[in-house]
Amino acid sequence: MANILVIAEHDRGQLKLATLSAVGFARQVVADAGGTFEILVIGENIGGVAGQLCHCGAATVLTAAHALLQHPVGDKYARIVADATKERGATMVVGAASTFSKDILPHAAALLDAGMLSDVVEVRGDGDDFIFKRVMYAGNVIATVKLEGPVKFLTVRAAAFAHPPKVAESSPIVSLPVTADKLPQFTEYGGQEAKVAGRPDSTEARVVVSGGRGIKNAEDFERLVGGLADALGAAVGSSRALVDAGITPNSLQVGQTGKIVAPDLYIAIGISGAIQHLAGMKDTKVIVAINKDPDAPIFEVADYGLVGDVYQVVPELTEKLKT
């Protein structure tokens, strides 16, 4: 029996898809061991997000809405999570492995004196208890662990648990009372630096389209890489060469000295495949490379390769995807 509380993550009215992996985890545990799960949405004006979660199979979708909770501030959110855990009698609290969860769940676990596991990729029952597998040392070691205590906090890797199919019946939405003066005031929201609007973050996206030295200027990058990315609903990335040349901003760089991405699909456009770049995308499931140089090392790691001029091939590909 498990009574699971899933913490939903959202941004500007949009549910973060990784939350569905946490729901997938909860569904699996409940299916194996019995019990129910609930989903907790915290914020202000969260009706829309709660609505998006109504067909996930949860016993209840809980909402904790208050003006003070407009932004994900660690101390306040953790208090809400801890209170909800106690009140609902949850035995397991789950979030997707993300910066959001890293901030809030350990904090909440500490408030309840509970154990915490991060980056869980597998779970199975062990009598009344559970055995988890979690990733350590940058993916080089998989640890098999048990967690002591009546309440377990954990984060799950998005790629490890599939999004659950929708269910017909709708979960009831229950609003939790929020008392403003009971919320801690240690942290204050300062501001948020918004990234290039519209496109997902490359570290979270399931598809990343990335451009390299084969692209000559910023307009071409936006047209070729951006165009293909938008057609796929993908994030954009870039190699260091383009950042150096001032064609792309630092925030897009993928590689050893940039972001580490692990999407399902990575499309490398005009990227030669230097080890520093490959180090940033080595956990990609499927790599597609487009480059005019058939000797480019990228073709050695690519699952699909296309030798051709990116200026000709990419617009064609984008066009076909659109139709």
């Binding site: 040392y137 940058a138 993916g139 080890i275 180090a279 080595k282």
Partner: peptide
């Protein structure tokens, strides 16, 4: 850190 965990500086599997 990667040299320590994977015996190569890129952190690729040993």
């Amino acid at each position: 850190r990667r040299i320590q965990s994977s015996a190569n500086p890129w952190g690729l599997p040993a």
